[in-house]
Write a protein that binds this DNA or RNA. Structure first.
Length: 650
DNA sequence: CTCTCCCTT
């Protein structure tokens, strides 16, 4: 057993580079390791460093952008080391710490290491920090770049043991990484990937869904019998996936009898777990799987058996407009790096085929890389975290790719309004409230509401409410079951709005005996509801650490007022025909169709919202009715200063 | 007036 494991480790492409890797990482304070998928860098390099004795002087920490990856890789490495998970090899993700006093190799999410850096900005427990999947450029990885670079410098100046930095990436474009990390040594490792044949369309396609359907049917019909490769189609969202699913199922009934059967499966993040699991099951004999997926199958889930990839060249992605404080959610062309990632999904087990539903010329015109997340997100959380680490000179914090200055300024303004930061001339000072806010794993607005609940004596209720607002959605609505879902959920309707409706749903959920079937019957998202319970538990524990009393009061008006303490800027006034204007910027906004206030007539004159997202229009996504008089009580300075309208009639 | 890609603390 142990020897077969050892033989397997030695057969990896990286093994021949073992001695060189150990030598270089020992002699260079920063290294960049470039290796494709299948090189074994993530599992092997930490073990090499451990086996050579480096871990005697401190922890070897490896970050991953995703929880499941951190857990499954640690499990694998513990097996290879013949130790039990949580002993020498462990992992830590939110809600779950599987490490112990003997842990030497620790896999963790990048977000968790960042949180750890708030308590210990020098990362003094670590001898080596390895940032894996750095090419994905998550906002957490990008902030960690600056944090570990700063920690290394400061440890050197204070003569504390050297912090060794290893950046692992799958892209060959290494000069920006190397420049940023003091001309770090770049090491290349062979990957193990099969050849993928690429095909482009000859003309641009006006309707990529139609092209995708045609391509699936052609592949399925043309292929010689005996071969059986699954087809993976990349689409942009649930709607597209479900509509293509229905078309393909209709086509199936017209197949000639000698054709193989086709099993068409949807795949997207919000899909209930039981349905997601179907993509991993073996299809019945003589049946081909056709998986219709969002970009979840690009990196997060690895599907075995895929031989054909159909790439529409489009993705639905987030953006951010700092001037309006607005999240954007738009369908846009992918980057070249993303197109290569999609292609690679066809060559994991054997030679594969990739059909790009665009011309080669349009491929060449795509952006080289996806814009790093830090340049297209709200930075208020990042800013609060940096300040909590003692980094005061925010505007000159060295990012590898600097976020837009407007985003930093907007984030700063938000923190000042929430009284988390005092801005005295040129210096920024974190207030005691701000320090306390940073101890919660929440956006500054939500932390702010939660702390306001101390004064309103409703901490228990706000813990629940901010937990409910921390998950993507509590409602699950399949496209073809909208009416049924609306009907089933009618009993939760609240004339005061979505936030009290969420509380009502939560109460019913807690009193139900069979949670799973209750969620199913009521079109409630079971997985997310279960996450809400984990978040509540964690938030209560942090309240306890902050010596906050868990007071309770369930009055609906009180809860909405408390919520307004963190979201007083998000108020809109009805003008006509369901059209609203934000009180601050006079921007045109609408109630999102998923809101329980969407079809209420007449529309409430004043509402507050906890999310604003621009898709086809600018939508307020969680909406409650408010009395505008509350605003003068809650944010008197703000509404005194900025009010330009005759908002209050009496 | 008709709709939320993917992650994470």
């Amino acid at each position: 057993m142990a020897s077969s494991m050892e033989a397997q480790r030695k057969s990896l492409p990286i093994y021949s580079a073992r001695d060189r890797l150990i030598r270089e990482i020992k002699t260079n304070p920063c290294c960049i390791v470039v290796g494709e998928t299948g090189s074994g860098k993530t599992t092997q390099i930490p073990q090499y460093l451990h086996e050579t004795g480096l871990s005697k002087k401190g922890l070897i920490g490896i970050t991953q952008p995703r929880r499941v990856a951190a857990i499954s890789i640690a499990t694998r490495v513990a097996k290879e080391q013949s130790v039990s998970l949580g002993a020498e090899v462990g992992y830590a993700v939110r809600f779950e710490d599987c490490t112990g006093p003997s842990t030497k190799i620790k896999y963790q999410t990048d977000g968790l290491l960042l949180r750890e850096a708030i308590q210990d900005p020098l990362l003094s427990r670590y001898l080596v920090v390895i940032l894996d999947e750095a090419h994905e450029r998550t906002v957490h990885t990008d902030v960690l770049f600056g944090v570990i670079k700063g920690a290394q410098k400061e440890r050197r100046e204070r003569h504390i043991k050297l912090l060794r930095i290893v950046i692992m990436s799958a892209t060959l474009d290494t000069s920006s990484y190397s420049n940023y990390f003091n001309n770090a040594k770049v090491l290349y490792i062979q990957g193990r990937q099969y050849h993928v044949n690429v095909y482009y369309t000859l003309k641009p396609q006006s309707d990529y869904i139609h092209s995708a359907i045609t391509t699936v049917l052609q592949l399925h019909g043309e292929e010689e019998s005996g071969e059986n490769g699954d087809i993976l189609v990349f689409l942009t969202g649930q709607d597209e996936i479900e509509s293509m699913l229905h078309t393909l199922i209709q086509c199936k009934s017209l197949f000639p009898s000698h054709w193989k059967d086709m099993m068409v499966l949807p795949l997207f993040s919000a899909l209930p777990s039981a349905q997601q699991q179907k993509v991993f099951q073996k299809p019945p004999p003589n049946t081909r799987k056709v998986i219709l997926s969002t970009n979840i199958a690009e990196t997060s889930l690895t599907l075995s058996g895929v031989k054909y990839v159909i790439d529409t060249g489009m993705v639905k992605g987030r953006g951010y407009n700092p001037l309006m404080g607005l999240d954007l959610l738009l369908v846009q062309p992918i980057s070249k790096a993303q197109a290569r990632q999609r292609l690679g999904r066809a060559g994991r087990e054997s030679e594969g085929y990739c059909y790009r539903l665009y011309t080669e010329e349009s491929f060449l015109q795509l952006e080289e890389n996806t814009v790093p997340e830090i340049q297209r997100c709200n930075l208020s959380s990042v800013l609060l975290q940096l300040l909590a680490m003692g980094i005061k000179d925010i505007l000159s914090f060295e990012f590898m790719d600097q976020p837009p200055e407007e985003s930093l300024i907007a984030a700063l303004e938000e923190l000042v309004l929430l009284k988390a930061v005092n801005k005295e001339e040129e210096t920024l000072e974190l207030t005691p409230l701000g320090k306390r806010m940073s101890s919660f794993p929440l956006s500054p607005s939500l932390s702010s509401c939660l702390l306001a609940s101390v004064d309103y004596d409703c901490v228990v209720e706000l813990v629940t409410l901010v937990s409910l607002l921390s998950v993507d959605t509590v409602l699950y609505t399949p496209t073809d079951g909208r009416e049924k879902a609306d009907l089933a959920r009618m009993k939760f309707f609240c004339p005061e709005g979505d936030h009290l409706m969420l509380m009502k749903i939560h109460k019913a959920y807690q009193t139900s005996n069979e949670k799973k079937s209750w969620c199913h019957d009521n079109y409630i998202h079971a997985r997310n509801m279960s996450t809400v319970q984990d978040i509540r538990k964690q938030l209560k524990e942090i309240c306890r650490q902050n010596s906050l009393q868990l007071t309770s009061n369930n009055d609906g008006e009180r809860l909405r007022k408390t919520l307004l303490c963190g979201f007083f800027r998000n108020v809109a006034e009805h003008v006509r025909d369901g059209k609203y204007l934000t009180v601050l910027s006079r921007q045109e906004v609408f109630i999102h169709p998923s809101s329980c206030l969407f079809s209420v007539t007449p529309p409430p004159p004043f509402v507050m919202y906890t999310e604003l997202v621009h898709t086809t229009k600018c939508y307020m996504r969680m909406v409650s009715v408010i009395d505008p008089k509350w605003l003068f009580e809650i944010a008197p300075n703000y509404f005194h200063k900025t009010m330009t309208t005759n908002m209050i009639q009496d």
